[in-house]
């Protein structure tokens, strides 16, 4: 979780207009994320730790370095600092209510012959979404089933944290029902560690959503939430089309509350479940 507002602004020379455009294009090229005009403070506060660590004095120096020969590690750090990774357990209770009450029971019924369910949390960030899904499925007590949740993200740093399955008190306080906290976590010092059972259901690996998704396991359920909002229309269209190639007929896509396939991809059929919208591939 990032607390931008608490960071002091980068000192001395502010970001020059020229370098602003450079950073916009740089971020777009490396991640697809579009940053509007007037977000200097955001760029400066997020890049400040890197400027300090690299012993540079201003954000313009950092741009100069990036324009010249940025070492790959620096490039990665810059991109990772500029992505928003905020997430929480059971984010959007409408979606998780629908999963619990109708979507998962129907899916389990439909898969009862093969006893296999594959779920993908695209843009998994620090893993709370993927683990929330694993917890809900574990609660169903599906012995003898193969249940796999794949979490992917562009940012390797958040994936490393996700793979540990270890969370701060402030993170388990948010959105995670207490009954699941006491059942699936143990306390380790001030942190909270997810049980091996839940962790064994989830794997994480790096993936740029703009890359080809051919060859990815057909998924029954794809979560791609709160990431499309950062992209332009063409990128959104391309990603929605690629995601379709990882689904089979009847599979469901879940987007963030502020996202839709409308006017982007007509191949999905919007199916309301309670107060949440799911997008089905016919």
């Amino acid at each position: 979780m990032q607390t931008l507002s608490k960071m002091p602004p980068a000192s001395s020379a502010g970001l020059s207009p020229d370098n602003y455009t450079f950073l916009q294009q740089y971020l777009y090229r490396e991640s697809g994320i579009v940053i509007d005009c007037g977000k200097s403070y955001l760029l400066e506060s997020r890049l400040l730790p890197i400027i300090k660590a690299e012993n540079l004095s201003t954000i313009n120096d950092l741009c100069r370095l990036l324009r010249a020969t940025a070492p790959p590690a620096l490039k990665t750090k810059v991109i990772e600092s500029l992505t928003t990774n905020e997430t929480l357990f059971f984010r959007d209770s409408n979606v998780f209510d629908a999963l619990e009450k109708s979507v998962l029971p129907q899916l389990i019924e439909a898969k009862n012959d093969i006893k296999r369910i594959n779920i993908w949390s695209a843009a998994a960030s620090t893993g709370q979404e993927a683990y929330s899904l694993a917890i809900l499925l574990a609660e169903r007590g599906l012995t003898g089933w193969s249940i796999q949740v794949l979490g992917t993200d562009l940012n390797q740093q958040v994936l490393d944290r996700a793979a540990q399955g270890r969370y701060l008190q402030i993170e388990v306080n948010r959105g995670l029902p207490a009954k699941y906290l006491v059942k699936h976590f143990t306390r380790v010092g001030l942190d909270w560690q997810l049980s091996p059972t839940i962790r064994s259901m989830v794997k994480f690996r790096q993936l740029d959503l703009r890359a080809s998704m051919r060859g990815m396991a057909p998924f029954d359920l794809v979560f791609c939430r709160n990431v499309l909002i950062y992209f332009d229309v063409d990128t959104k269209k391309k990603i929605l089309a690629e995601i379709r190639s990882t689904m089979r007929s009847g599979s469901l896509l879940v987007l963030g509350a502020a996202e839709t396939t409308l006017n982007l991809d007509d191949n999905y059929v919007r199916v309301p479940h309670g107060a949440a919208a799911f997008y089905r591939l016919p």
Binding site: L88, F90, S93, D97, I170, N173, R174, G175, L176, P177
Partner: peptide, 11 residues
Amino acid sequence: EIIADKLRVLG
């Protein structure tokens, strides 16, 4: 935020 998230959990 934490309180609001929990009110959501409680529906």
